[in-house]
Amino acid sequence: MITDQLVTNWTKAVNTDPVVRLATRYATFSSLLEIGDESLLLKARDGEISLVKSPTLEEPWDFAFRGSADAWQKFRLAPTPTTNHPMSMAYQGHMALANGAPNYFRMEGNYQKLFAHMPALCSILDQFRGLEG
């Protein structure tokens, strides 16, 4: 799912989109994006964003955003009421009754850092939708 072309296109999109630039202009964090069996390290340093494919143990991160390949594929397609936004896909299960909508994504790690950077993270994830590659 994570091709070199996708990483290149995603990196370019987040560093040029004006909404992402505004949302991330002071953002400083490292996040592990788990996409099925693959992973990406998302690094933001004062608004400069980079994506590192298959990070090693030498790359620490503050929080992880994890989902199955199927969950990310659902997110990538046109939004539906249960796949509308990263936040809902990570939180709707907490409100589900029996057989309700699941949590497609899991958020783990330094929650203070995660929630402080939630708008920046979501703006970056939003660019994943419609990406070629």
Binding site: A78, P79, T80, P81, N84, H85, P86, M87, S88, Y91, Q112, F115, A116, M118, P119, L121, C122
Partner: peptide
């Protein structure tokens, strides 16, 4: 309520997630 989280910014994601596409 946390002093190291900007609640005004944080809330945007929650609200956006509740609005129709």
């Amino acid at each position: 309520r946390h002093p190291e989280v900007n609640a005004n910014a944080m809330v945007q994601s929650l609200i956006a997630s509740l609005i129709p596409a």
